[in-house]
Structures are given as structure tokens and as C-alpha cells.
């Protein structure tokens, strides 16, 4: 945000009060983040269909936009805008209408603390990482609202599963990040990235064996957190029709879709910043930081897509088993191990 306020200060000179600068900068940043989210959905829907096509030995979209169906997401968007907005007769109308936005806003808010490049961060919070986990769990409320308000038993199933899953997997997700916080001594996202300066060997996931395991735990938990295969239980197509968004149509459905892909990119961005050195390149000095950051995050997204189109889905009890009996204890071991490692190598205090 500093970048934006500086920019506005340079443009308007003394014409804007500090408060005006803050508001203008904040609004611009929010707009950029919303655009990034929309762009995510557009690019990743296309990418997902292409990746799926590649894995399944077919082409995927090929018609719209001449080259490999690049304009397919645009065509989809136009189609979805033209769809009728249906609210089921027996639905809880206010909740039903509100739910997609709760999910969307929860996702949008988390973007504020993602450091894309030096200084290019909407809110440089001291509690950045904590803030991200806090607001992204608001999406759970949206899922529950959508499932309950739809007045559809399948939606309710999806919502119950979604809530249980999100609440459970937040724990290993956050626990996996704790060793990094211990090493960095800060929850500020900028500080975490800056601590990884100096090539790939300084990146947190290669810091010590415990952090490597923590990174893997984070990655698996993040897939579950965004409800994607093999952990896509809340929207299991073959069991729950479409889960909590079964009854949604048109733009409201699109918001769920948008939030899903934005969340996908979001967790990858967090992984990039926390474990994979953020905008720091593999070696050498900082070079095109924003691009480096996005490339790393996109590679993680592609990895998640690869997993989704390869693996079958877990069952509910197996999902909980993996979380509570495997991942949470492992994450705790990682926290302990990282602490011991720090003491042993003299990094502590």
C-alpha cells in the first residue's frame, strides 16, 4: 500500500490530505486485488480444463478464441451472466443471497496481506500470517450459510462436510507455518520473505528437515482447505450432486467458482511467501520480483491441478483420520523438531 500512497502523493502533491491518500491508496489496492482474483478465476478455469485435457489425453477447449480456446472463460462468463437468478421457493432468502458474497469477501480480505513484491502489499500487517488464517476461515461461515439456506438435503450435507473439513484442516495448516514463524521471529509476511534472501538454500522449506515436512504438510492441508480433489468432499459430484452450491445459478454460482479459484491461488501464494522464498529468485539478486512470485505460485497451482485429476477422493472418516491422527501430530513434531534444531544450531535467541 506504501507504493500506492507514494504514487498518489507524487501525482497530487499536497492536494490530498494524509487521510485522503490512505483512502485513495487503499481503494486502489482493493481494486487491484479484486481484479487479480477475477483474473485468477479466468486464467485458472482455462488452465484447469487444459491440464485436465492434457492428463486425460484429450484437447480441452479448442474453439473459442482461435488459439487453444483461450477465450473460453470469457464465453463462459457471458453465458453465466445471461443465466436466470433462481432462488428456491423454500430457501432462507436473505442468507441464500448473502452466502456467495461472504465466501467471496472472506477470500478477498485475505489477499490484503500477500506480499507480491517488495513494498507491493495491500496491508503490511505485523500479524499478517495470523490475519490471513483468521479471515480466510470466514469462508466456512459462507459455506454453512449456503448449505443451510438452500433448504436442500444435499446442500446441507455438503455444508456440514465443508465446515467440518475447513475447521479441521485449518489446524495443521496453521501449525505447519509455526516453525517458519519461530525462525523468522515475526508474523509479518514481508519479514518472512526478506528472511529468505540469498538463493534457494535460504528458502524456508530447505532450512531443515522439519521445515521440509512442514511444507509438505502445509501443501496437503491447503488442498483440503480449498476443497479440491482428492479432498473435494463438500462438493463431491458423485455423492452430493454439487454440495453446498447445488441450488445456485448464474452469477451467484459464479461467485462460488470465483472464490474457489481465488482461494486456490491464495493458498499457493501463502506457500510461496512462507516456504518458497516469496519474490526471491533461485539465485542472484532480486529480479522482476512480482513475476518470480507469480510463477512460483502458479507452479504450485498446477501441481494441485495435477493431483486433482490423478487421485480418487477420500471418504469423510478417512479425511478426518488423515487430519487428526496423521497431520496434526506430525505438525506438532515439526514444531518441536524445528525448535530443537534452532537450539542445536545456535539460531535461537
Amino acid at each position: 500500500m506504501q507504493v500506492m500512497t507514494d504514487l498518489f502523493a507524487r501525482i497530487f502533491g499536497d492536494g490530498l490530505s494524509p487521510l485522503g491518500l490512505l483512502v485513495a491508496g487503499g481503494l486502489t489496492m482493493a481494486l487491484i486485488m479484486a481484479l487479480v482474483m477475477a483474473l485468477c478465476a479466468i486464467v485458472f478455469t482455462w488452465a484447469e480444463r487444459k491440464v485436465a485435457g492434457f492428463i486425460q489425453s484429450r484437447y480441452g477447449p479448442m474453439r473459442v478464441g482461435r488459439w487453444h480456446g483461450v477465450l473460453q472463460p470469457v464465453a463462459d462468463m457471458v453465458k453465466i451472466l445471461g443465466k436466470e437468478d433462481i432462488v428456491p421457493q423454500d430457501a432462507d432468502k436473505p442468507l441464500f443471497l448473502l452466502a456467495p458474497f461472504v465466501i467471496f469477501v472472506g477470500s478477498l480480505m485475505a489477499w490484503a496481506a500477500i506480499p507480491f513484491a517488495p513494498g507491493f502489499i495491500a496491508a503490511d500487517l505485523d500479524l499478517g500470517l495470523f490475519y490471513i488464517f483468521a479471515v480466510s476461515s470466514a469462508a466456512t461461515i459462507g459455506i454453512l450459510m449456503a448449505g443451510w439456506a438452500s433448504n436442500n438435503k444435499w446442500s446441507l450435507y455438503g455444508a456440514a462436510r465443508g465446515a467440518a473439513q475447513a475447521v479441521s484442516y485449518e489446524i495443521p495448516l496453521a501449525l505447519a507455518c509455526i516453525p517458519v514463524v519461530m525462525i523468522t521471529g515475526s508474523l509479518n509476511m514481508n519479514d518472512i520473505v526478506i528472511a529468505q534472501q540469498g538463493g534457494i538454500w535460504r528458502w524456508h522449506f530447505l532450512h531443515d528437515p522439519f521445515l521440509f515436512v512442514a511444507f509438505l504438510l502445509y501443501f496437503v492441508a491447503s488442498i483440503a482447505e480449498v476443497n479440491r480433489g482428492p479432498f473435494d468432499l463438500p462438493e463431491t459430484e458423485s455423492e452430493l450432486v454439487a454440495g453446498y452450491h447445488t441450488e445456485y445459478t448464474g452469477m451467484r454460482f459464479a461467485f462460488f467458482f470465483l472464490a474457489e479459484y481465488a482461494n486456490l491461488f491464495l493458498v499457493s501464494c501463502i506457500a510461496t511467501a512462507v516456504f518458497l522464498g516469496g519474490w526471491q529468485p533461485l539465485f542472484g539478486p532480486v529480479f522482476l520480483p512480482g513475476l518470480v512470485f507469480v510463477i512460483k505460485a502458479v507452479l504450485l497451482v498446477l501441481l494441485q491441478m495435477w493431483l486433482r485429476w490423478t487421485l480418487p477422493r477420500l471418504r469423510v472418516d478417512q479425511l478426518m483420520h488423515v487430519c487428526w491422527k496423521v497431520m496434526v501430530p506430525l505438525a506438532l513434531v515439526c514444531v518441536l523438531g524445528a525448535g530443537i534444531w534452532m537450539l542445536a544450531t545456535g539460531q535461537a535467541g
Partner: peptide, 16 residues
Amino acid sequence: FGLDMGAWTPLLYCFR
């Protein structure tokens, strides 16, 4: 059956 388990890709291979 694979699809029921959430595995999409085997279905496409089978159809091939």
C-alpha cells in the same frame, strides 16, 4: 466406478 470414487481420469482412458 472410478468416477464414483472421484477419479475422473480413468473414465476418459476407458472411453478411449
